[in-house]
């Protein structure tokens, strides 16, 4: 259950003090990364934290100053959470948010507390137990905090994959297991620009909808490795979340993947319905909206109404269709290429 409370003046004051004090601490390592339109300076309190999270992001292309600072630190053993009313013993999520601040304790979902202070454009991720950070979380670090950083912009983090050809992008939404990852990585192998296979950023302005990378990561199941031998150089680790082997990829070293946003031409809801060839079909926007909004609300709690408004704008701006890739991925990519022309 999610407990959401707006306001909370005491918590907000403590959050503001906490962020300010954290920013004055020494940090062991820093990275300047690019997350969509934002340049973020990420400061890690120790090398373990850097090793856990840093490779999940693309380095910033320009040497310009960072627009946000994110401080990542780990709690000492037994150290209480630094916000009043927040406890490590609380298994449920706890959210306090306002226009200025966003404070989220993840509870049993993840050993993390996020504090985002919009006036100072600073955020903190406080990890209570480094060894408890799951591999899936390392592949998409700080997601709720990043979403909160985008709340005062038209950008939105969504659960979707995306590919582009010549800066014209297709967004693949839909349920897990429908083939979004396979499709996007096969596209990468076939010369498409890979934008993401799990979470990506969308610019929801109606006159210029666009997609941009959020994380420089992908995850391959064991049975997918042979299909993508060209990604072997991107492999960083084997993880065993839930006893399933996954090959963790960091794509930050692949220069052709860097780049800004690509114009969104099409939003496809990937859903297998038994077609023997790739198939495009009409779909109701309400179905797509409900599915995508549910994930946004759960994976990145808070600001439901403005985030839903952004998602609605996106669905108004981009043509939407249902897509069954069929059994052959090569045919699916050819159909997508033809659709873009």
């Amino acid at each position: 259950m999610i407990e959401a409370k707006r306001g909370g003046a005491i918590v907000e004051a403590a959050a503001s003090d906490f962020v300010r004090a954290t920013a004055t601490r020494p940090f062991a390592a820093s990275r300047i990364v690019e997350v969509g339109p934002l340049t973020i300076a990420i400061h890690f309190a120790d090398r373990d934290l850097e090793a856990l999270f840093a490779d999940a992001f693309y380095p910033a292309r320009a040497a310009s100053g960072a627009s946000w600072s994110l401080f990542v630190l780990a709690a000492a053993e037994g150290e209480p959470l630094p916000l009043p009313g927040f406890s490590q013993d609380e298994p449920d999520m706890r959210l306090v948010e306002s226009a200025e601040r966003y404070c989220l304790w993840m509870g049993r979902h993840s050993p993390s507390l996020y504090v985002v202070d919009r006036p100072s454009r600073r955020a903190v991720c406080w990890v209570t137990e480094k060894s408890a950070v799951k591999a899936w979380e390392r592949s998409r670090p700080f997601l709720p905090a990043l979403q909160a950083m985008f709340d005062d912009s038209p950008w939105l983090a969504v659960h979707a994959a995306a590919l582009a050809l010549a800066d014209r992008a297709i967004l693949f939404a839909g349920p897990g297991g429908a083939g979004k990852t396979t499709l996007s990585l096969a596209g990468l192998s076939a010369g498409w620009r890979f934008i993401g296979d799990d979470y990506v950023l969308v610019d929801t302005r109606e006159d210029a909808p666009a997609v941009a990378p959020l994380f420089a990561t992908a995850r391959l199941r064991d049975d997918m490795v042979a299909r993508f031998p060209n990604l072997a150089r991107a492999r960083t680790a084997i993880s065993h979340d839930f006893d399933e082997r996954r090959h963790e990829l960091s794509l930050r070293g692949i220069p052709e993947l860097r780049g800004g946003a690509a114009r969104l031409e099409r939003l496809l809801f990937v859903e297998r319905s038994g077609h023997l060839a790739p198939d495009f079909a009409p779909i109701r926007r309400s179905k797509v909206l409900a599915a995508m909004a549910a994930n946004i609300f759960i994976a990145t709690p808070g600001a439901r109404e403005p985030r839903l408004r952004k998602l609605s704008r996106l669905l108004t701006a981009a043509p939407v269709a249902r897509f069954d890739p069929g059994p052959r991925i090569e045919d699916a990519l050819a159909a997508l290429m033809a659709d873009l022309r």
Binding site: K134, A290, I298
Partner: peptide, 28 residues
Amino acid sequence: QKFDDLQGLLLVDPIHEASPAGWPFVQA
């Protein structure tokens, strides 16, 4: 037509019912 996608995700136990893709995805 009523859509209950959010209800489905709200009921996911993040420890025992999440898929290998991680919370908040449900085991197939």
